[in-house]
């Protein structure tokens, strides 16, 4: 190992040590404050009980179906939205006419909290998976449309000129120049879309679904089985962490030519 690598590793370890210490203090507080009665254990059970509930829920398989329900809704919604979202985004990015025709709807619908569309979906499709998944899909759809369109419109015009100069046809120009140049924006859209869809799916579960991690939190709140509630909470946090960090890493790897800006 070279000195540089060693130093870098050392620094990484030191950062992790500090972060671990902070996390350790937090968990220790979470364990002892309820035990000492400084926090009401009925509302804030000690960390060990939550971990036990999480472990039991996962091993006994009581939580697993809910995890599966949330994940499958998330993935179905996302893939349902991805292709149409990319298509509409590309069309709006490339053609001014398409953009001007579609812009009013995107501008009005994009800032609407997509959970607010749940009642409409419930009326159209009845209470059931179709309504839940479609509400999630709408979240991803608009995010992907907006980021894809912006990504394509921000492509440096000189790159397009270079492409033309070197004899690229319209078709090749799109695949070889415009699309790669717009890829950072497009991938960001997909990533944000997936993250926001998780928010919507969990909110939908919280509000009405009879399965999924959101429903577990709601149900355990109503029955005050707090260890189970926090176990679901932690599971959602881990899922979110996996999505945000994992996808960010994937994006950085795919776009090795780009310098990465990190925000959680």
């Amino acid at each position: 190992m070279t000195g540089a690598a060693a130093r870098q590793t050392l620094r990484a370890v030191r950062v992790d040590a500090r972060s671990l210490a902070a996390a350790g203090i937090l968990v220790a507080g979470w364990e002892f404050l309820p035990r000492r009665g400084l926090l009401n254990p009925a509302y804030f059970p000690p960390a060990s009980q939550v971990v036990a509930a999480l472990a039991e829920g996962l091993s006994a398989g009581e939580l697993l179906p809910h995890v599966a329900a949330t994940v499958s809704r998330l993935l179905v919604a996302f893939f349902l939205a991805a292709l149409p979202g990319l298509g509409v985004g590309v069309a709006m990015g490339l053609s001014g006419t398409v953009r001007r025709v579609a812009d009013p709807y995107v501008a009005l619908l994009y800032p609407i909290p997509k959970v607010a569309l749940l009642p409409l979906m419930l009326i159209l499709f009845g209470v059931g998976e179709r309504a839940f998944v479609l509400t999630g899909a709408l979240t991803a759809f608009f995010q992907i449309v907006v980021n894809t369109m912006d990504g394509i419109r921000q492509v440096d015009p000189t790159l397009v000129e270079v492409g033309r100069n070197y004899g690229a046809t319209r078709f090749r120009l799109f695949w070889k120049v415009v699309l790669p140049a717009a890829l950072p924006g497009i991938l960001t859209g997909l990533r944000l879309g997936l993250g926001l869809t998780l928010v919507t799916v969990v909110a939908v579960e919280f509000a009405i679904a009879k399965s999924g991690l959101g429903h577990v939190v709601w149900g355990s709140w109503q029955t005050l089985t707090t260890p189970r509630m926090y176990a679901a909470f932690v599971a959602v946090g881990l899922l979110g962490l996996l999505l945000t960090r994992g996808l960010k890493r994937l994006q950085d790897r795919l776009l090795a030519w780009q310098t990465s800006v990190d925000v959680w």
């Binding site: 500090r18 972060s19 902070a22 804030f44 709140w221």
Partner: peptide, 29 residues
């Protein structure tokens, strides 16, 4: 930098949790 490194893992974990789920917690407090 100390604050950044101490809070980073906590924020990274809590940030992606959909806010609605905090309703029970907030109601407890």
């Amino acid at each position: 930098r100390g604050a950044r490194e101490a809070l980073d893992p906590l924020f990274a974990f809590v940030y992606p949790i959909p806010s609605v789920l905090f309703l029970p917690l907030a109601a407890f407090v």
